[in-house]
Design a protein around this nucleic acid. Structure first.
Lengths: 339, 339
DNA sequence: CTGAAAGCGCTAACAC
DNA sequence: GTGTTAGCGCTTTCAG
């Protein structure tokens, strides 16, 4: 096993002081007018010894770790995975690393790992919170750690967020359905504890109202962002006498559940039932029929979140406003025109 | 902004020494026979002050950070996202945190971030390497940092790996095709620089040979794990005069490309062309037709990787063997029996 | 131009 | 039972 090389060992070997070596290696040679000879010597030796600065020690003394905590409810959900990718990319560009936690939709886990992040002295936290309670996030604020929510958020918490414009997205999707002649529409949604779920439901309901579609003949069902939830409610819906002509699935997983159910009862999209899914995923364009979706701009959300958090890290007094990012309807072939 | 509370401040406020407070808070009260009174006092005060241990300081002094670096080629690829989930879960269970890097299939990025991980003093690294070169991984070994490859690996590197049994998986898939009467099969593969690609190709070829299918009438094409690669080659394949009756897509992304192409030229699976995809994803069972796949055991791979790395961290001399994890054929409806 | 020393927060060795 | 001290590796005054 190889012996460790630190500033001190380098200094000793070169008959210099740790301070000097530190200054050189941190590009402060000019500033301190250190002789070219010394500079060259240090660089050469450090390279030769394959010196690797100890960021832990640096972090301890600077009270800054260049680490951002990323708290995600489910990294295997492609929506979050994609967001993680962009957040990661933006973070690295700014020389920050990402400490990843998958809360697995479990609030206890979220709490515990949030504490861990505090102990690890992350410089900031980006989180898509799991539940309805956010006391544990208040603690983060109290600790003075910059925090921003992505995707999910709490309206009544004083924490800024970057999310899709969920209301508009749902509104537009519903409008599209209505324009295609649909008057019997079912919304399969997630848990309303989640703010974006409320927003999407509002967008849906308001579109119905605005275009004079009877809410009495529409459905608002479901309570989870899962395949199971989409599946069960679709079965129920499609087996009822007065069934809908279109389904609006509020997430990619719910959408998968709808697909599963429709296939199982041998119906055809869009002939028997039209479908639109909130959240676009690669596969939806390659299946038969390609699904019309509401695409969220994960890249922008990720970039803004990092930008935001870094600004806050660099200047704690910064007061940045939450942002709602526009969505895009990706029109494909899962909505039938029944006008 | 709140003032920081450290062992020292607690000690001062309580008229104790930092050492004592440390011992109490680390559950060593019994061992040092510290008075119940003191213990209670310390715990109460620490809780009241919302004390959070500084893991950075702890890490510096113990030369152990309880952090594992996870290097992934593309976290938005659901295969890797799922693996990341399981690795993360297993790591947290053992009180380790995950420092995530998405190399974005870019070797320079991988190199740079590997160095960063070394500087951050991660206790071990789990990586699915991007390319063909692995000098930079040798450096990790030289530093004495435990390292294990997952999914992708190098046969000639002295680094242990946990991966699917790629050879067998491909062999079984090919066998299934042959048993269903296919004699004109195309394999669309990734870059052969990647060891599992070679293995899968071998499995494919050997199955052909073993069951007496003419390799002259089969195809081995493609060079990337991308949708584009799958798409382009499928188009070419299906537009040729002597086209295959079945396609074996070597990854989920290639499979998506095949789906895209097949749809575009208005062919039907499995009537016009049979398909089997290496790597199972949720959506494949809900589309029409459901796709037969080779399912990899991501959970097991993830768990073993963590188990492995922690063993190695705890006992550097441990010499653990690489492992190939069995795959499973998920028979669905994308393979037509043409016997 | 460079060195010496203090300190970031913590633990462990050594005192008593 | 508890205090004191040294040191993890680094940067940063303060000296000279």
């Amino acid at each position: 096993m190889h012996k460790k090389v630190t500033l001190k060992t380098i200094a000793r070997d070169l008959n210099l002081s740790p301070g000097t070596v530190s200054r050189v290696l941190n590009g402060k040679a000019k500033e301190f007018r250190i002789s070219d000879e010394t500079v060259a010597k240090v660089f050469r030796f450090a390279k030769q010894m394959n010196y690797s600065p100890n960021l832990i020690a640096k972090g301890l003394q600077a009270s800054k770790t260049f680490t951002i905590g990323l708290m995600i409810p489910d990294i295997s959900n492609p929506f979050f995975a994609l967001m993680a990718k962009y957040i990661q990319r933006a973070a690295l560009k700014a020389n920050y690393s990402i400490l990843l936690v998958d809360a697995e939709e479990n609030i206890e886990r979220e709490k515990k790992q949030l504490k861990n992040m505090v102990s690890r002295k992350v410089d900031g936290i980006i989180a898509a919170p799991v539940g309805t309670v956010f006391d544990h996030f208040q603690d983060i604020i109290a600790e003075g750690i910059p925090l921003v929510f992505i995707d999910r958020y709490f309206k009544n918490a004083d924490v800024p967020y970057i999310s899709s414009n969920n209301y508009n997205g749902a509104y537009e999707a519903t409008k599209l359905l209505i324009e295609n002649g649909h008057k019997r529409i079912a919304l399969i949604k997630g848990d309303e504890v989640i703010e974006p779920v409320k927003e999407r439901r509002e967008g849906f309901l308001n579109a119905l109202a605005e275009f004079g579609v009877s809410q009495a003949k529409c459905w608002v069902v479901g309570n989870e962002f899962t395949i199971e939830n989409g599946y069960l409610h679709t079965i129920e819906l499609l087996e009822s006498d007065e069934k809908p002509t279109a389904i609006f699935a509020m997430s990619n997983l719910i959408g998968l559940g709808v697909l599963k159910a429709v296939k199982e009862i041998k119906l055809k999209i869009p002939d028997d039932i039209s479908l639109i899914i909130f959240d676009d995923q690669p596969y939806v364009s390659y299946i038969d029929p390609p699904i019309t979706t509401v695409k969220q701009n994960s890249e922008k959300i990720g970039e803004l979140a990092i930008e935001f958090i870094i600004k806050k890290i660099d200047n704690g007094s910064t007061k940045l406003a939450s942002q709602l990012i526009a969505t895009n309807i990706m029109v494909r072939s899962s909505v039938k025109n029944i006008n």
